[in-house]
Design a protein around this nucleic acid. Sequence first.
RNA 1: GUGAGUGUAGCUCAAGGGCAGAGCACUGGACUGUGGCUCCAGGGGUUGGGGGUUCGAAACCCCUCACUCACCCCA
Length: 425
Amino acid sequence: MKFQAPRGVKDLLPPASESFRRLEDEIRALFVLAGFREIRLPIFESAELFARSIGESTDIVEKEMYVFSTKGGETLALRPEGTASLIRAALEHRLADPGRIERLYYQGPMFRHERPQAGRLRQFHQAGAELIGSSDPDDDVDLIATVSRHAQATSIPSSRLLINSMGCAECRPAYREVLVRYLEKYRADLCETCRKRTETNPLRVLDCKIPQCQPILESAPHITDFLCPDSRNHFDHVSRGLEGEGIPFTLTHRLVRGLDYYTETAFEWVSDALGAQSTWAAGGRYNGLVRQLGGGDVPGVGLAIGFERLFLLRELAGTLPHFPDPAVLLAIHPLEEAARPYAHRIMASLREHGIPVVGLFGKTRMKKAFVQAEREGVRFIGLLGGDELSGGTITIKHLQSGIQKTVSAFPPEDLAKTLRETWSP
RNA sequence: GUGAGUGUAGCUCAAGGGCAGAGCACUGGACUGUGGCUCCAGGGGUUGGGGGUUCGAAACCCCUCACUCACCCCA
């Protein structure tokens, strides 16, 4: 084979592509019900934008971004996530002014240069919802509850919600110091990455899965014990709110978001059904991001859903949506040369009336035409021969039942009505 | 970036040093105004690629590429 798709990208063929689209529609509807409106964002941005927002010392920025330079000398990057773009756009168009509340969602491909594995691609898809301008914990609760309820309604297998607090600009540095002091004490027993991270990004150390580090990390100080009164209050309010809503969650002290901009509430939904990449949705509050990107003191909270992972889970659950069946209602088969123009005319008028129809022109033998119609999943086949041509009629046969009748082909709305209503399940 | 496993027809897989095969799929015919069944026939392969060992390699060795899973990281 001369050409094949680059590593880590996938062609999505029917019927999976159709289910994928339906799944996108479903998530879009979910966000719309919660008051979010769509924002269309560019696929590439200034590389600097991501470095500034996600964090210089994160893996995403350090080694996973597709960075390229243009003829004009700009350094751009394929977007590795959506929040940075969205906030940039909100600032650029003055949607993130202090005091203003804006609910926006996005959807589309993201790019990270990682080694592919189950649930991980180099081009993958996310849908994200971001609420800009509110610092109220009840907005955290609402956003989390919306996704958790949808997960439950669509029977996502063994899904669990994990919650933690990342503190704020006040208390996180204090906790950080306590944590670093603790880690330094056990420095000799930590793995090499953890030793390095103790200096560069100590909170990430909590995420380490290397066995030798586990005992140390298990008894590391919890961030929730060092929250300032405001952060404590916020987190308690979110916890109580979720309890009040009957949304089950697990307080996970070692849950840390991989992106630097998160503050306060951090949450993620995991499932054991997914393999090693178990997170299918995640999010959190990012009260410092807008300022970090040059805006005012505007808080935000948001989340993103990984579509490929959601797709897998819904497939396992048997709740994957499908295209309306059948996609094509009628296949028209001209039986002789003279009937071809007649076939075109009927097809055009039926399409005008919303009937999806294909022509079986290349199949000269009727048997082949029937086989092709079956293959395309159509419900009816329409036969046009000399009799139909002279009578202005069409013989329609319902493939499943074998029932057939010859009806007038005009006016098309009558034929369309017949097709829509006759023998419909 | 690291590691392990796997690469044979469109798909699922046989052949484990001695003729590259099966099932499904595909194409044609039996069958030119009525499909699904059946029967017959056919097209398809540099056995991922390159090198080596051997009289002989899909098989054994080396290199390489790809895929899968895991590490890492994350949605």
